[in-house]
């Protein structure tokens, strides 16, 4: 009665998005050979790194289900960048500043987690609040002007590279490996899936639901902090206006990569592939000389089409 069929359950879900990514890349490369220059590929890699890091954090939050979502990362990029720039231009050493920023962004995650788990405020609202507050705070700190004059050692965080690969890409790979391990190989990961699948049953099984949710927001906050530092190093300044709408790209990346908005399902690799597709689109539109006015229109449409295709694919497989 009981047969063992090893591994038959593991279909490779990321395959579709990966093929989409490669086809789009090939298409662009054919139309514009400059796409394959090292300079352009490095630029693309840096962009993928930012969206990828944010998408991983977003995936953790969304996977916990119950409508959980984090709308703050875009504004948090601006705020952490501005704060980092302020600290560094006020004599705080680079490493200390970076650590303070990361601690702060994890703290913001704790703040979100507190409202969501203890006070049962919807995540959408709490993080929408942060979206506005963080953007506002960046303007308050800078009075609207960028903070310039960052130490050159800090700028390497974005502009440096190892064996020709930009440092942000290395950071993405490192964080990706760690987070993938957390998600697939630890009790926390399994508990996260359980909470997203059926919160009540998870609780009845002894899962500490609140702690799981709290950790997801902390991860997302941390990821936004990392991305904020990289962006500040890229611009060589603290910019209050940077990163707007990035949270939406992060959410879209996660969903394109197979994260279910109702929770319980998602993968790190998928989010990175999703982020790669969106970054590549930006890049391709520039490479193909599409007028910038059209960029948002095209990207919006691609997001809808990509997610629709994915939904259809799932329905056919049943």
């Amino acid at each position: 009665m009981f047969r063992k069929k090893e591994n038959s359950h593991r279909s490779f879900k990321e395959l579709g998005p990966i093929i989409a990514f490669l086809s789009l890349a090939a298409f662009t490369a054919v139309l514009n050979p400059r796409f394959l220059t090292p300079f352009n590929l490095q630029t693309l890699g840096r962009q993928i790194a930012i969206f990828g890091i944010l998408a991983i954090g977003e995936t953790f939050v969304i996977m916990a289900g119950g409508g959980a979502i984090d709308l703050s990362p875009g504004s948090m990029i601006a705020l952490t960048g501005v704060m980092a720039a302020w600290l560094m231009t006020h004599g705080v050493p680079v490493s200390v500043s970076a650590l303070l920023i990361l601690a702060f962004s994890i703290g913001v995650g704790v703040w979100h987690g507190f409202f969501v788990t203890r006070l049962e405020v919807p995540a959408f609202i709490v993080t929408l609040g942060t979206l506005t507050i963080a953007r506002g705070m960046s303007a308050v700190i800078t009075r609207g002007w960028p903070i310039i004059g960052l130490p050159s050692s800090f700028l390497k965080l974005d502009q440096g590279s190892i064996i020709g690969i930009p440092i942000p890409v290395w950071i993405l790979v490192l964080l990706g490996l760690i987070m993938d391990f957390f998600l697939r190989k630890t009790i926390f990961g399994k508990h996260l899936r359980a909470v997203g699948g059926n919160e009540t049953a998870a609780r009845f099984s002894g899962v500490n639901v609140n702690r799981v949710r709290m950790i997801t927001f902390m991860i997302s906050g941390f990821m936004a902090g990392i991305a904020g530092l990289i962006v500040a190093a890229r611009l060589s300044q603290g910019q209050p206006g940077v990163g707007s709408m990035y949270e939406l790209y992060a959410i879209a990346s996660a969903v394109i990569g197979g994260t279910s908005l109702t929770g319980g399902e998602g993968s790190v690799l998928g989010s990175i592939v999703g982020a790669s597709i969106i970054s590549l689109l930006w890049n391709a539109l520039v490479m193909l000389n599409v007028s910038t006015y059209w960029h948002n229109v095209v990207i919006g449409m691609v997001i809808v089409v990509a997610v629709t295709l994915d939904v259809l694919r799932k329905r056919i497989r049943g």
Partner: peptide, 16 residues
């Protein structure tokens, strides 16, 4: 409602 996470496998539910 309380016993199972229907979206997870038989194995994952048993070992939870």
């Amino acid at each position: 409602l309380q016993g199972l996470i229907l979206t997870m496998s038989v194995k994952d539910n048993i070992v939870m």
